[in-house]
Amino acid sequence: MPSITLIVNGASKSLEAWDPDMPLLYALRNDLGLHAAKFGCGLAQCGACTVLLDDMPVRSCSIRIADAAGRRVVTAEGLGSPEKPHAVQAAFIAEQAAQCGYCTNGMVMTAVALLRAVPRPSRDEAKQALAGNLCRCGSHERVLRAVQRAADSERA
């Protein structure tokens, strides 16, 4: 059985992988117990499974664990804690930007990547960055306010 090493939330994790083609999402949830990334569509179209791979937002349902070997993976659990949330997580809480919460992981991870690339995004830039993250609850306006709040807090 091959062993694969991932760097997840700053820690090296060795996995005994039955299949190197297994999606990264399955390894994160089933082997490492990290449940923020959700299984949504399984086709990389909804964004619920978004993680950062070498600081880029990717759909973990479509990334093979073999392709993530030795690369930096950050999940929402690696951003902050309930006691000290990341600026984006704190902004989502303050703006009540989650309704059912299923899409929240993808929205947060995509917003983190956006703010790292564009510290002061316009509303249109935020909308464009988040366009691939599906939400059926209709919390888009609160999500956009949360992105702006996080951008403002990181400038302070």
Rank of each mutant, 00 (worst) to 15 (best):
N105L: 04
D54A: 09
C103G: 08
C61R: 12
D55Q: 14
R71C: 06
M107K: 02
C137D: 11
R72C: 07
G106S: 10
D31S: 13
P82K: 09
Q89A: 12
A111N: 05
A131D: 09
A76R: 13
A48E: 12
R116C: 01
A87G: 04
A117S: 14
L32C: 02
I65W: 07
A69P: 04
Q96C: 05
C46L: 10
A48S: 15
A69S: 14
R59C: 13
A87M: 06
S122I: 09
F92R: 02
D54T: 03
L53G: 03
L52G: 02
D124K: 14
Q45S: 13
A97N: 07
M56Y: 05
G78T: 04
G70D: 06
Q99M: 13
P82C: 11
G80I: 04
A97F: 03
A97P: 13
Q128H: 10
G33T: 00
V108A: 01
A69Y: 09
A111M: 06
K38R: 14
P121Y: 14
S122V: 12
A37I: 02
F39G: 00
A48C: 14
G40H: 08
P85Y: 00
E95S: 12
M107W: 12
Y102V: 11
Q96L: 07
S60L: 04
I93T: 07
D31Q: 11
R72W: 05
Q96E: 15
V112P: 10
A113N: 12
Q45F: 01
A98I: 14
C61I: 06
P119T: 10
D55N: 12
A36F: 00
N133K: 04
S81N: 08
M107I: 08
N105E: 12
N105C: 14
A129I: 09
P85M: 07
K84L: 05
V112F: 13
L114K: 11
V74T: 15
K127G: 03
S122D: 10
K84T: 13
P121N: 09
R59L: 08
K84M: 03
L52I: 06
M107T: 02
I63A: 15
M109S: 05
N133S: 11
A111L: 03
S60R: 01
G80H: 02
R116G: 15
L53Q: 00
N105S: 15
E125M: 13
A117P: 01
A98E: 09
N133M: 12
A129C: 07
E125L: 13
L134Y: 13
A91V: 11
Q96W: 01
G42P: 04
M56R: 11
R136H: 12
G33Q: 04
G78K: 07
A98N: 08
R116P: 02
P119H: 10
L134I: 15
S60Y: 01
E95A: 15
G101T: 14
T110N: 14
P82I: 11
A117M: 06
G47P: 08
D54Q: 07
D31A: 07
A91W: 11
V112H: 13
A94W: 00
L34D: 01
